[in-house]
Design a protein around this nucleic acid. Structure first.
Lengths: 202, 202
DNA sequence: GTTCCTTCCTAGGGCCCCTAGGAAGGAACT
DNA sequence: AGTTCCTTCCTAGGGGCCCTAGGAAGGAAC
C-alpha cells in the first residue's frame, strides 16, 4: 500500500484551491479524498471533521489576506494607505473567492482572540486609521464601517449583485474616495454620547 | 389517504420560517417534508428542486424586505429617510436572519430584471437619494456604497464579526451618520472621468 | 527482528437530493 | 351515479455526502 503522505497542511491547501474553484460551501471531504486518491475515512486522521477543516481554511485564508494587505499598506499613510488596503482586500476577494468566503465564517471567539493573525489584522487596520486622528469609540466605529463596506462590496460583487452597466472598478474607487472623505469629516462622538465600555478590536 | 394540501406558497412560507430557525443554508426539502408530514418526493410536485425553492424564498424575502423599507421611508426625505431605510434594513436582517440570507443568493439576471419587487427596490433607493442631488454615474456609485455598507454590516454582525465591547447599535447609528455626511460631501465625478455606459439600477 | 504508533483501509449507518412509476383524491363531464 | 382525467401523494431506489468503528499495513525506534 503506497501512502498518500497526507498532512493537515496539504489538506487545507488543497481545500483552499478547491474552494476557489467550486465555492467554499461546496468544499467536501469526499472531493478532497478523491483528489488525494484516498478514501473519505482516511482524512479523519488529519482533520476532525468538516467543521474543523473549514475553520483551518478560514485561518489559513485570513493569514494570506492580511499578509497581502500588510505588504500593500507598508510605507503608506492617509488616503494612500486606505486605497492600498482597499485594493489588496478586493483583489484577494476577486482572485481567491473561495478562500475569501472562508474568512467570513462564524468562528469561536476564543480562537479569534488567540490568533496572532487576527491581532495583526487589528493592528494594521487601526494603524492605517491613525492618520485621521480619531479616538475611541469613533475609531472602532470607523473600523466597523470600513470592514462593512469592503466586505459588503466584495460580497455583492461576488454574487453578481451589481447589475448596472457602470463599471464595478470605478464604483469601488469612488467608494474608497468617499470613505476617505468620511474619515476626514467624521461626525465625532460628543463626550455625552460616549459609551463607558469602549475599545479593543472592531 | 388524507391530503396535506401543499402549495408552493405554503412550502415557501414554511421554508422561510425554517430558514430563520436553522439558517438559510440548512433549509432542506427533507425537513420541510417532515414538517408537513409528507414524503420528500411529494414536494417535487410543487417545487422543481432545492435550487428552485431557494430562488422562490429569495424573491419572497426580497419582497418582504422592500415592503418594510417602503413603509419606513414613506413621507421622509434626506437624512431622515436614510436613517429609516437603514433601520428597516438592519431590523429585517436581525429579526429574520434566514430570510435575509436568502435575499443575498446569486440569482438569474433575467429573473431580477423581470421582478417588479426589484424594480421597486431600485426606485425607492434612488428616490431616497434624490435629496442629495447626485447625478449619474455618482448616483449608481452612491447606491452601491449604501448597499455594500448595509449588507456588509449586517453580514458581519450576523456572523459575530464584531468582537469589540462597543455597542453594535451605536456603531450602526454612527455609520448611518457617516454615510449621510458622505452623501452630502460626495466627491463628484468630473466630466472627464465619466463613463459612457451609465445608469440603470445599482 | 520486534514493538508500537500512525496512516490508511473496509464496512456500514444516517441524512440528503432527486427520478421513475404507480395509486388514490377529487373535479368535470356525461 | 359512473367515467374520465389531472393532480397530489406514494413506494422504490440510486447517488452523494459526513462520520464512526475496527482492522491491517507502513515504518520508525528499540
Amino acid at each position: 500500500m503506497v501512502r498518500a503522505g497526507l498532512t493537515p497542511a496539504r489538506i487545507v491547501a488543497a481545500a483552499a484551491d478547491l474552494a476557489d474553484e467550486v465555492g467554499f460551501e461546496n468544499v467536501t471531504l469526499s472531493a478532497l479524498a478523491r483528489h488525494f486518491g484516498v478514501k473519505d475515512a482516511s482524512l479523519y486522521s488529519h482533520v476532525r471533521n468538516l467543521d474543523d477543516l473549514r475553520t483551518r481554511l478560514a485561518l489559513f485564508a485570513g493569514a494570506e489576506l492580511i499578509d497581502r494587505i500588510a505588504v500593500a499598506v507598508a510605507g503608506r499613510a492617509g488616503k494612500d494607505a486606505l486605497a492600498a488596503f482597499a485594493g489588496a482586500y478586493r483583489e484577494y476577494a476577486l482572485e481567491r473567492p473561495g478562500r475569501y468566503a472562508a474568512t467570513q465564517i462564524r468562528m469561536d471567539q476564543a480562537l479569534i482572540a488567540a490568533s496572532p493573525d487576527f491581532r495583526r489584522t487589528a493592528e494594521i487596520t487601526y494603524g492605517m486609521l491613525r492618520a485621521y486622528g480619531l479616538e475611541e469609540p469613533d475609531l472602532t466605529d470607523a473600523v466597523r464601517l470600513l470592514r462593512s463596506t469592503f466586505h459588503g462590496y466584495c460580497a455583492l460583487e461576488a454574487t453578481g449583485g451589481f447589475g448596472a452597466a457602470r463599471e464595478v472598478q470605478k464604483s469601488w474607487d469612488k467608494a474608497v474616495d468617499a470613505l476617505h472623505v468620511t474619515l476626514e469629516n467624521w461626525p465625532r462622538e460628543t463626550s455625552s454620547e460616549k459609551n463607558s465600555e469602549e475599545q479593543s478590536n472592531g
